[in-house]
Amino acid sequence: MNETTEVIQEILESLGLDKNYRTDSLILLETGESKYVRDFKLNFTSTLTSQFLNNKECGLIGLSIAVNNNNKALTNFFTAYAEKEGASAAEIAEAVGVLHCWLLTMFSIVSAILRKRKNTARYRPAYGCS
């Protein structure tokens, strides 16, 4: 077992996954003995600590992003982490509720309506002439 495999297994275990779990990207990292895996592990560990945000806040932000990305394993991990750091069920529910960008959704709806109106206006004379 090489060093990269050990680091990958540590990351998977910290996420509560089976250490033999592999995806295409993990296999590529493992076979190439990527030197960046250790950096990746350090970066992931650093997501759970911040000088300006407390651990509960870090967990809740991680949870909102994991839910936004439809990532079940990370959602479970950050839910457990936030609970461990003292987040209430209501706070967790609120973090889960920040699913998408409200303004982006509104902008998409308004632009879709405007596009539809514009298209209708453009094609009306053609239908009208017949």
Binding site: I11, L12, L15, L17, T23, S25, L26, L29, F40, N43, F44, S46, T47, I61, G62, I65, A66, N69, N71, A73, L74, F78
Partner: peptide
């Protein structure tokens, strides 16, 4: 960004 990157690499 780190949570997103983790998700992309592992899953």
């Amino acid at each position: 960004s780190l949570v997103t990157a983790t998700g992309k690499i592992i899953f």
